[in-house]
Design a protein around this nucleic acid. Structure first.
Lengths: 111, 111
DNA sequence: CCGATGTGCAACTGTGTACTTGCACATCGT
DNA sequence: ACGATGTGCAAGTACACAGTTGCACATCGG
């Protein structure tokens, strides 16, 4: 039930696990809008690699894209990120209370 | 600078990307303490697979372990999770404000 | 119209990893 | 002491993925 908030947890975390992808997100966040070619200039990899990374990010809704003439413009989205953050906090709180309960039991005064 | 809060972001997100590992974390969270063999009984994989997963989780400080006689007991930790959640929220806020600024510029009344 | 720029598709390579099996070693209870 | 239980190490397999190269196609500017 704890994963209910996050339907694509696997893919989302996997997407965020890639350093270059996080870099792309940061660059995209500061540019607002950018193309694969532009972003590729900032990274030590090929444009194709960037395109594939952007496809992954788009598949988990971290970015969206639209063609504008001969170029494709990418934009960043914050919702999946805040959703994941909320899930983490929720799970953390659950663990905390559970562990606190266990600890309380362990430290209960021996009647 | 945005990744300053999270020094092992790659490994942490990669650790969380594995469904079985998240399952392990949840079970561990509800048990409080458990052994690899016990946890393996709840998952459709071998004890060895569970052990390897636990090693990954331990390497990013999501769990810790200690030997007790002939068995090894694992416990869950919340700190890395809350740290990651904080990082996400921070990045999300940055993007939000940046995008708001860009949008404001775009919608500025044409003097 | 033509070169330049940007994109998309496809195949190939290398590396990482999830999971398995097999076995040796340590520890518990009787 | 001895069987049972739990752990640790090692090698092997199958698959996913990051990154590359090569080329064809579309679109812009002069």
């Amino acid at each position: 039930m704890t994963t209910a908030l996050l339907d694509h947890a696997d893919e989302l975390f996997a997407a965020l696990a890639e350093p270059n992808r996080r870099l792309l997100l940061e660059h995209l966040g500061s540019y607002g809008v950018a193309t694969a070619t532009t972003l590729a200039a900032q990274l030590p990899v090929t444009r194709q690699a960037v395109t594939q990374h952007l496809a992954v990010l788009e598949s988990v809704n971290l970015v969206s894209s639209a063609r504008a003439g001969r170029e494709r413009r990418y934009t960043v989205h914050v919702e999946p990120l805040t959703a994941a953050a909320n899930w983490m906090n929720q799970v953390a709180v659950q663990w905390d209370s559970r562990l606190a309960a266990i600890k309380a039991l362990a430290e209960a005064p021996p009647d």
